[in-house]
Amino acid sequence: MNPRERWSLLLIDELPDRPPVWPLVTSFSASVAGIDIERYCRDPEALATSQIKAQQLFGHEALAVFTHVGVIAEAFGSNYIYQAGGLPELNKPVLESAANGRSLRVPDPAVDGVLPAYIEAMRLLYEQAGDRLPVFGFIPCPFTTAAGLRGINDLLTDLLLDPELIHKILGLATEGAIKLADAAMRAGALPVLVDPLASGSVISPEAFRTFALPYTKRIIDHLHRYDLDVTLHICGDTSRMLDAIIETGADLFSFDKIEPEQIIHKTGNYIRLVGNIPPHCLLESSKIDIGEATDKLARSGILSPKGFVISTGCEVPLHCSPEKLHTMINRGKQALYPQRSA
């Protein structure tokens, strides 16, 4: 069974031989390939080559195109700084002044910002390995894009003081995300919606319901019209917003700081789960501890009724030790479903 086949079974409610093992190997692959981050973000061949190289080295079971959470905001006109040794950072949001909102144009993934390179990387990966590995295209959700358009501090202030403005921005960000998701699909990629700033560590469950849920749901509804399986990733602690997350209609939820048993108990009958070795473990913990943590996660994960993917809670850190990632992946692959192993 190859990774493509394993995922295919998972998505039609069949248990494969074991859960797919897919730590979120994104920009870390640039480190593996010795490519600097700016080139990784702007050069589709560099990104695709890095992903393939990392996958060949570690054997994880999907390819991912993700550079930074601001790709849509950047295409709208926000300015990001690319710096050596780290991920791009927001420098000047395009809506630094609220009055700019009127002049925004929804970016076209074929021409604006780094989006053409982003989509081309998906196409290249699909062309090279799409028959045996799923290719995931990461799409920033509207709330996270809004943070890139307005700046996180102003956004959080406006949620209370100027919600009307934020809804307008979110509407535009949703259109941008739908266009990007559509382009990703046409490049052969399955969409992963990422909303790190809609985390319970940043906003309240009420704010999530008001400012994140409806817009994310709109994107998922669009993709469901085409019958695509959609993964939603939200970092941090989302334990108090799980009901709303299920309401988005996502088919898989990639979770971070929640006990696996807790989330499986609460949501496992409704949604496939993807998680959640903490990324910092891959930096700080010993290989022995990582192996044990993966075993423990797998023991819980295989009990998740709708299926489980052994993963990390967030992106694999840029400076992760390869040996530790190897340990996690190899141990994850030993988790057989009881029905199959019998």
Binding site: S8, I12, G130, D131, M185, Y226
Partner: peptide
């Protein structure tokens, strides 16, 4: 939901039907 099937070819491309 699982038994609907009126979907275009693009639905099947991301699942490997190159």
């Amino acid at each position: 939901n699982w038994s609907r099937y009126l979907f275009p070819p693009s639905t099947f491309v991301p699942y490997g039907q190159k």
